[in-house]
Structure formats: C-alpha cells, structure tokens
Computed example of a mutant assay.
Amino acid sequence: MFFNSIVGLGSRSAFASFGGFNSSSLVFTRNLMKTHKGTAKRWKKTADGFKRGKAGRNHGNVGWSRRSLKVLSGKTPAHESHIQRLRRLLPY
C-alpha cells in the first residue's frame, strides 16, 4: 500500500494492467482431454491398436457346446472403422 501511494498507481498494481489486457484475460488454460471411463473399462490400448473381450460369454450359456463357448473366449482387436473414435475416447 505504501509502495502504491509512492508510485502513484492507487489501488491497481503494476501487474494488473499489461498492454491493454486486464489480469483476468492473461489466464492461460490447457485443453485437457478426458479419458472416457466406460470405454476404458471395456477396451485396452495395445501397441498396434485396441483390444476388447468378446461378448456373449457372461451368462445364459447352459447347454452350449464347449466349441461354441471356446470361440467366445479371449480377446479380439478393434475394427479399423472404430480406431479413430477409440483414439478420441482413450487419449492416454
């Protein structure tokens, strides 16, 4: 306060006005991309792309043959038409 009265700035500081901008316009923000949590629980990022578990194996499989259940086990890679959307949903 004593420094402001000597310099003659009053209640404004020297840093509040810079080149015609007020201090609120000098706030810099980063555009952070958020991970889509629903996608993150279903898809895993690999070196070549993305992979997911196959659907249809969780319940209601009584009476199914072992061969048909074995086909539904394991992981499957993402289709090439989904890659762009998955990159946007899982940026990190």
Rank of each mutant, 00 (worst) to 15 (best):
M1C: 13
F2M: 06
N4S: 10
S5E: 14
S5V: 11
I6T: 03
I6M: 09
I6S: 01
L9N: 14
L9T: 15
S11P: 15
S11C: 08
S11I: 10
S13W: 00
S13K: 00
S13D: 14
A14F: 02
A14R: 01
A16W: 00
F18G: 00
G19E: 13
G20D: 11
F21C: 02
N22P: 00
N22V: 06
S23K: 06
S23R: 06
S24K: 09
S25R: 14
L26K: 09
V27H: 05
T29V: 11
T29N: 10
N31G: 06
K34S: 15
K34T: 15
K34A: 12
T35P: 13
T35Y: 00
H36I: 01
K37C: 04
G38W: 01
G38V: 03
G38I: 04
T39M: 13
A40R: 03
A40C: 03
A40M: 05
A40L: 07
K41Q: 11
R42M: 09
K44M: 09
K44T: 14
K45H: 02
K45A: 12
K45D: 06
K45G: 08
K45P: 03
T46P: 04
A47Y: 09
A47Q: 10
D48E: 14
K51F: 00
G53K: 10
G53I: 05
G53S: 06
A55G: 01
G56F: 08
R57I: 10
N58F: 12
H59I: 07
H59G: 06
H59A: 14
H59M: 05
G60M: 03
N61M: 06
G63L: 04
G63Y: 02
G63H: 04
G63C: 08
G63I: 05
W64E: 14
S65R: 11
S65K: 13
R66E: 13
R67Y: 13
R67W: 11
R67T: 02
R67K: 13
S68E: 15
K70T: 08
K70F: 12
V71N: 02
V71A: 09
L72W: 05
S73E: 15
G74E: 04
T76P: 05
T76L: 04
P77G: 10
P77C: 06
P77R: 04
H79E: 12
H79F: 01
E80G: 10
E80S: 15
H82D: 15
H82V: 05
Q84G: 06
Q84A: 15
R85I: 08
L86V: 06
L86N: 06
L86W: 01
R87S: 07
R88W: 01
L89K: 02
L90F: 01
L90E: 03
L90S: 05
